[in-house]
Design a protein around this nucleic acid. Structure first.
Length: 436
DNA sequence: TCTGGGGTCCTAGGACCC
DNA sequence: TCTGGGGTCCTAGGACCC
């Protein structure tokens, strides 16, 4: 008899999440090919099953598939992150209410720890929870259950295959959208022919490198000695391998660690050539970054700004530059950050380029409370600044973001990203509610 | 042949994830 | 014409300290 496994982690993954969100509010999209584009309508970042069957790859440049999309009447949407974030919160709340403990891993994925549930009840538990999420939110989800996070990812892929009508006979317990790798032999069977590149933690570079050593499947990878893995794939690769062998090395993080950096960057809807427009853009990014910073109750010690042209122009028309400003006093005060960001843009700006993108990064973050104050710098203004930002945030939270804003961000913002194909923000804006 | 030993901090580059 | 945005971690090497 096989011994019972010590731990059980479930990976819950929303199927084709952004497309599924659109479908909740627009049922005519059900069963027809549908895709969602990235910011600035650049890439295809979510595809319905029907769209995948047309051969549209993940991350494809939208303009390259224009013709195919039209020919097959594919429904195309700009991304609507306000909607997706809200739908994500609904899914996560249901999971958090039901599960013993949860780590929200990304906008469409969560790990939950089912170790405390009796092994013989876990499969039915997952089926019931899956049905509840779909019934309450309209979002289809998949559950993969296994002793470690990395194996739960593998199980989740099988669960999705079952949903598509392609079960893998003899590998653990399976039903549409649920797979439980419940025994060592089920795990062995799941890994036997699995390509190494399909494993969580092994990207295409490592997959190529492994191919060079004639290692194509996970089963083969697991025969390699620890020292070899450590040498060629660092400690992270070794953790992945141990996880595949059934030993948990990546723990469930129930409490999200504070960000170490905050990045805001966007491509422009049109090529931007003038300094004032670039300054407006980085002032806008500094403003929204500062909002995120204050939301997280953090201060930043520095700001890094970059400007760039498109990568897809002749080399002599390419330009990238970045500069960092260190604040003498860590801050979350928007005007200070706008001043620093726009002054860095002035330093880097060259009039002979067409800029495609700019961005800012807040670095050296520290907690707002208790703040580490310097000895030799006057801090008299800090309480006033804190109160002012508190008031601005309160107004914008109550009456909608951008109710009060800094004129440095520009008024018409003609450089803004394209997103003409965005659906309504059905769940977060009163004037965009679904009409029946 | 052999050139002291033990540390910290920073940065660039490379890897990964969604 | 048109190619996303936002994150984390590890390692090697150099600068610098006593």
């Amino acid at each position: 008899m096989e011994p019972s496994l010590p731990s059980c982690i479930a990976l819950v993954d929303c199927n084709n999440f952004f497309v599924s969100c659109e479908r909740v509010f627009n049922p005519k999209l059900l069963g027809v090919p549908t895709v969602v584009l990235s910011s600035n309508d650049g890439c295809i970042i979510a595809r319905s099953e029907e769209a995948k069957k047309l051969g549209i790859p993940m991350g494809a440049a939208a303009f390259k598939y224009q013709k195919l999309l039209k020919e097959h009447n594919v429904h195309v949407y700009s991304s609507n992150f306000e909607l997706y974030s809200d739908m994500s919160a609904r899914v996560m709340n249901i999971l958090a209410d039901s599960a013993p403990s949860i780590e929200i891993y990304s906008i469409d994925e969560a790990f939950i720890d089912l170790t405390s549930i009796a092994p013989e009840e876990r499969f039915a538990y997952a089926q019931a929870l899956r049905a509840r999420v779909t019934q309450w939110t309209g979002i289809p989800v998949s559950f993969g259950l296994a002793p470690t996070k990395t194996l739960a990812k593998v199980a989740n892929d099988i669960a999705k295959a079952v949903s598509r009508g392609k079960p893998k006979p003899g590998i653990g317990l399976q039903s549409p959208g649920v797979c439980y790798l419940d025994t060592p032999s089920a795990i062995d069977a799941a890994l036997k022919y699995l390509p190494v590149g399909d494993v969580w933690g092994i990207g295409y570079r490592y997959a190529n490198k492994l191919k060079g050593y004639n290692i194509h499947t996970v089963a083969k990878l697991l025969t390699m000695p620890d020292e070899w893995i450590r040498k060629h794939m660092t400690i992270n690769g070794l953790r992945t391998v141990w996880e595949l062998r059934g030993t948990p090395c990546i723990s469930l993080e129930e409490i999200k660690a504070p960000n170490q950096t905050i990045i805001k960057s966007r491509s422009f809807g049109i090529p931007v050539r003038t300094l004032p427009s670039l300054k407006e853009a980085v002032a806008t990014y500094a403003t929204i970054a500062a909002e995120t910073l204050r939301e997280q109750k953090q201060l930043c010690g520095g700001i890094c700004v970059w400007l760039q042209t498109s990568w897809f122009v002749a080399e002599e028309h390419r330009y990238f530059n970045s500069e960092t400003h260190i604040f003498p006093l860590p801050t979350a005060y928007t005007p200070t950050m706008i001043a620093a960001a726009t002054s860095l843009v002035e330093q880097m700006y060259r009039s002979d380029f067409a800029y495609k993108k700019a961005g800012i990064m807040l670095v050296d973050l520290s907690p707002m409370d208790p703040a580490q104050l310097p000895l030799f710098i006057a801090t008299d203004d800090v309480p006033k600044q804190t109160n002012a930002m508190h008031a601005v945030d309160a107004v914008n939270n109550k009456w909608g973001s951008h109710t009060v804003y800094f004129v440095a961000s520009g008024v018409d913002q003609h450089w803004k990203s394209n997103r003409q194909l965005r659906s309504q923000r059905f769940t977060t804006q009163w004037d965009e509610l679904l009409r029946v």
